[in-house]
């Protein structure tokens, strides 16, 4: 699955995005929400990296920070060989055509006062010097590509269904022939039949235009369908990153195991036999994460060291990264089996 010759198109190193909290009469800075706290990953050319995690774990913030829609706290982001982590917003403008975004809520991400044509045309207006007729032709081509009738170009977003609106959003993201698209839960606001359409459309477009996706979602089965590799986030950190098949067949991190056990099993006899791992308690506040491992407050296989030392995020097998103490002391001798045994005892 992992082709060694592939080079990373996007490379994120220790990305941190903290939002300050101001409180009190003098609006003093009393702390910060560590929405994304030290995230590192690579996205290889032509692949789809799925980013999963529960609500509020920092997935969307991470996606937006990678595109530098926020001014990040620290870290390095390189897209297509250019370092953009510290570039000022005005200088980023010329980089924008390479990286685009598809948003979660297709209703909110389209300006209600603009026609479909104007919405899809906006990137062309900003970055190209085409004539009006050429732009109109290009908009027509994009509408064909995402399966929208060209006749609807003069209509406004409110006249479309959710799936059609999401197609408009995808057409807008495609307008400048980007290399990298962040899909921020593009299917979360759609009903199931439309979800499949949109995901298939995204796959077709990936094949057609050679796109690279960062696919953010909380829908594990959809990620399993579309992603080549999957990263699991918990409380602002990536706890596990692995090739899709490996992750779904043999999850390493206890949180990934719990997450995967929550996926409904369609076969009733299998469903009865599988044991669900039910996590106790709530996600700690990202403004005040626990000492040591972020997951230590809810982890079924928690150890003493977890509450003191933060586990290092590292490659435990080729292509499989995780941040868990279960795999740290045994790695050089027995590989993952010891870790699994330890896991089995505690469960």
């Amino acid at each position: 699955m992992l082709d060694a010759t592939k080079k990373p198109l996007v490379s994120v190193k220790d990305l941190k995005m903290h939002f300050p909290i101001y409180a009190g009469l003098l609006r003093r800075r009393v702390g910060e929400v560590k929405a994304v706290d030290g995230v590192s990953f690579d996205v290889f050319e032509g692949e789809t990296l799925g980013l999963v995690g529960e609500s509020g774990c920092g997935k969307s913030t991470c996606g937006r920070a990678v595109l530098r829609l926020y001014d990040i706290t620290s870290g390095a982001i390189s897209i297509d060989g250019r370092e953009i982590g510290a570039t000022p917003q005005t200088a980023l403008r010329e980089m924008r055509p390479t990286m685009q975004m598809v948003f979660q809520d297709p209703q909110a991400s389209l300006n209600p006062r603009m026609t479909v044509e104007n919405i899809i045309k906006e990137p062309l207006d900003e970055h190209t010097k085409l004539s009006d007729a050429e732009k109109r032709e290009k908009v027509g081509e994009l509408m064909d590509a995402v399966g929208l009738n060209r006749k609807f170009a003069k209509r406004y977003p409110h006249a479309f269904s959710g799936g059609q609106r999401q197609r408009i959003g995808i057409a807008r993201a495609l307008a400048l022939n980007p290399k990298f698209i962040v899909c921020d839960e593009p299917i979360a606001a759609l009903d199931v039949s439309i979800q499949a359409q949109v995901v298939n459309l995204l796959e077709d477009l990936q094949e057609q235009f050679g796109l690279t996706y960062l696919f953010i979602s909380h829908d594990l089965s959809m990620v399993r369908h579309i992603a080549t590799r999957v990263a699991v986030m918990y409380l602002g950190k990536i706890v596990e990153l692995a090739p899709r098949d490996g992750l779904y067949a043999d999850p390493l991190h206890p949180y990934t195991k719990a997450l995967l056990s929550a996926v409904p099993e369609p076969d009733p006899s299998l469903a009865r036999s599988t044991q669900r791992i039910i996590l106790k308690g709530d996600v700690p506040s990202p403004s005040n994460p626990p000492e040591g491992c972020n997951f230590c407050t809810r982890c079924p296989s928690v150890m003493d060291i977890c509450k003191r030392v933060e586990p290092e995020y590292r490659e435990v097998h080729p292509g499989r990264f995780t941040a868990c103490h279960l795999y740290n002391d045994t790695i050089d001798t027995a590989g993952s089996t010891a870790g699994h045994e330890a896991e089995g005892h505690t469960q």
């Binding site: 924008r96 975004m101 809520d105 909110a108 900003e126």
Partner: peptide, 28 residues
Amino acid sequence: EREFVLAARSIGTPPRRMITRHILPNVL
């Protein structure tokens, strides 16, 4: 704070055109 403004930012629309194209028509 609406998403379409964020979308325009991801396209690289500068503030003055953001105001004339996205903000003003919506506060009409």
